Each structure stands twice: as structure tokens, then as C-alpha cells.
Computed example of a mutant assay.
Amino acid sequence: MPIPTSTRAAVLTDHGEPLRLTELPLPDDLTPGAALVRIRCATLCGTDVEIWSGRMSFPGMLPMVLGHEMVGEVIATGPDTRDALGHDIPAGARIGWSESTCGECHGCVILREPVACARRGYGFRQRSDTFPYATAGLSEYAYVVPRAAKLLLPDRVPDTWAAMAGCAGKTVLRAFDRVGGVRPGATVVVQGSGALGLFATAVARLSGAGQVITVGAPAARLAVATKFGADAVVEVADGIVERVLDLTGGRGAELVMDFAGAPSVGREAVGMATQRGRIVIVGSTAPAVAPLPLGAVMGKELTIVGSLNGDIADYHRAIEFFTTFAGRMSWDDLFGTPVGLSAAYQRIEAMHRLEEIKAVIDPRS
């Protein structure tokens, strides 16, 4: 097919306002390592909703194209464009991609940690009015920058699952890895019943937890948590710590995982954790200052670990996870009915109202 010179995109110009369908230019020269893709599927993440609402914001970010969980069909590539494992990427291939890294900073070279890259670049952090314009999911075509870590995707992983693996999936699996995994038979509390919390509930169950408790709202999402392996669910309106302690015979949980981000999460996590328990903080992205009972952290000898998103290795593991456990959970329950770009704003609003777990946008519609 001819290489397009522009793309239709849903652009965020003001926080909390409808997205504007706009025609954006596409680069006319694909540099080494770059690719041009036709977006097949984008799944919206909680971060997209927080950026849209303005809860997550930074100077000079708008206008922008949202969407950082996506799958694309390769239209063309620059010279020497390969995936993260060194495979050539031909036209027509289906790929996913992670954020770009510089390969030169302290985080990349000394720490050897992609998530610590000083110039780590997400597609949605690219302004849509400057080169290369369209690098995120809510557009018909996207420019995949040279240093973005790309993955050729296996046919047996559906587009929605593969897109989710690019952020929500890899974020959850990295969190389990950062905190040392699940001891067989352990009690795990998952704070949050969004896509990350629900996926973490399933991962905890599949990892051999003896008891899984999911804390969240609304009731419809907690029903999904039960389908995904939660032995018990706790409404956020309840006395959360007291309820969890009651469910665990007063002992608390060996592992508490934050995917909620509410100001009370840290205090509640410490209260729910058992002696020498482990806590991993993943969802607390808001700038609000939240007190933490350090005396209880010391007295219980707790281990508290932070986990930030994930890198290309975590993304690869997420694809492998969906391949291995494809039939073990009803993963499609996480996703809404696909809609086109013109309806993306309504689906973001629905997620904001907690009426949809994970919206699916098909720009080809």
C-alpha cells in the first residue's frame, strides 16, 4: 500500500474536554530503526484517563495524542529496524512497542535499568504539533521512533491482550518480580479493582497464593475479581483494614499490592500486612502527600518496595504470560466493545466514571 503522509488522530487539547479529531502530518523520511504502523488496536489505561482529566499533568504537554497500549501493522520501516530480540521487522508484521530509551545515561549504562532512563520517552508525551507528531495509540497511523523497544507479536495472542501487555500487563508482572513473587499458599491483598488490580488478582491466583483478597469498587468490578480468583472482596467503603484482618484470622497478609493510589493506601497497606510482610507500591502516582505509620513499619519489620511501570523485558514476559495462561482466565472480561476514534472520548469518560474497565479503540473503524 502507498505510504501515508498524514493521519487522522483524536487529540487532547484541553484537560477534561472532548478529544478533537484532527489530521496530523506523518514524517516523510523513516530514519534507521524507525517504523510506520497502522494502529490495529489501542487499549486505554488509567494513566490516559488521569492525563485527560488533568489529575496527571506537566507543563507544555498539550496538545497530545493519548494511548500507550497499542498494536500496529507495519507499513514501512527505516534501515536496520529490528525488534528487541534482533529480528528483522518486515512490512505487514504485527508489532507492539515499549517506550524509548537513550542508552547513554546513568540509568541505562550504570544501573542497566531502562525504566531509570533520564530521557525515557512515551509516545503520549510527544506533542502532536511538533515532529514526529503522531506516536501514540489514538491515531490511524503512528510513527514508532528508532529507540522504542519493539516486539514481533505471536499470532495466538489477540490484539487486545497484546496491547494491554504493553503497560498494564508488564506493570503488574514487574511488581510481582520486584517484591519477590508469591510464596505458595501465601495470603495476598490487592488494593484496587481497575485493570491492574484485576490482572494482579489473577496473577496472584495463578502464582499459587493460598488466599487472595481484592479491595476496590464498584461491585461490578469486584464481581470480575471473584471470577479472576479472589477468595474474598472488600468494598472500599468498608473498614478495610479491619475486614482484611478478620478474613485472615487477625494475622494480615504476607503480600500487599497497591494498584489503587488513594491517599489512604499506604496506611492501610501497613495495617493489613502481617509481621515481616511485604508491600509493593505501584499505583500511587498522584502528588498528594500521604502519611505512613513508620513505627508500624519498624515494629512489623515490613519490606516496602516501589515498582515503576516496566521495560521491554517485562513486556516480553507479559506476552509470554498471556500465551501460557490463555485459557486459564476469561481475559476478555477486562475489555469493552471496540469503538472508533470518534467515540474514544466517550469511552474515556466511561472509564473515568468506573463504568468500563478497559476501553478498546480500533482506529480502522
Rank of each mutant, 00 (worst) to 15 (best):
A134Y: 03
D83N: 03
D88C: 00
F124C: 04
P154R: 14
C167N: 08
T101Y: 06
S98K: 08
G92M: 14
E99D: 11
A168V: 13
A149F: 00
G137T: 11
L138W: 08
S128W: 01
H87G: 05
A91I: 09
C167T: 07
R120N: 02
D155T: 11
E140A: 13
E113G: 03
F124K: 06
D129T: 08
Y143S: 11
R120S: 05
K170L: 15
A134D: 01
Q126D: 00
P132K: 06
Y141M: 13
S128Y: 10
G123H: 09
A118D: 04
W161A: 14
G121V: 08
R94L: 06
Y122C: 07
D155I: 06
R120H: 04
H87A: 15
G123V: 04
G86N: 01
P154G: 06
T160Q: 14
E99P: 01
L153M: 09
A165L: 02
Q126C: 10
F124N: 08
S128T: 09
L173S: 08
T130L: 07
G121P: 02
G92N: 12
A168S: 15
A142V: 09
V172T: 12
V115P: 10
A116R: 11
M164E: 00
A149I: 03
P132T: 10
R156L: 02
K170E: 01
E113M: 09
S100D: 05
G166M: 15
T130C: 04
A91H: 05
V145I: 15
V145Y: 02
D159I: 04
F176M: 04
A136Y: 11
P158I: 04
G86I: 01
I89R: 14
C105G: 06
A134N: 02
Y122M: 14
C102N: 02
V115S: 14
A168C: 09
G92W: 08
I110S: 14
R174K: 15
E140I: 10
F131H: 13
F124G: 00
G103P: 00
E99M: 15
Y141P: 09
P146H: 05
A142G: 10
A84R: 13
C167D: 15
I110G: 00
A116T: 00
R112Q: 12
F131P: 07
R156N: 12
R119G: 01
A116L: 11
S139T: 14
F124R: 01
V145T: 14
L173M: 04
E140K: 13
C108W: 12
L173C: 09
P146W: 06
D129H: 10
P154T: 07
K150D: 06
A175W: 06
A163L: 08
V145C: 01
Y122W: 13
L138M: 05
P158T: 01
R156A: 12
C102K: 06
L85G: 07
G123P: 07
V172L: 05
R120I: 12
S98E: 13
A93C: 11
P154Q: 02
F176P: 00
C117I: 08
E113S: 12
R127P: 04
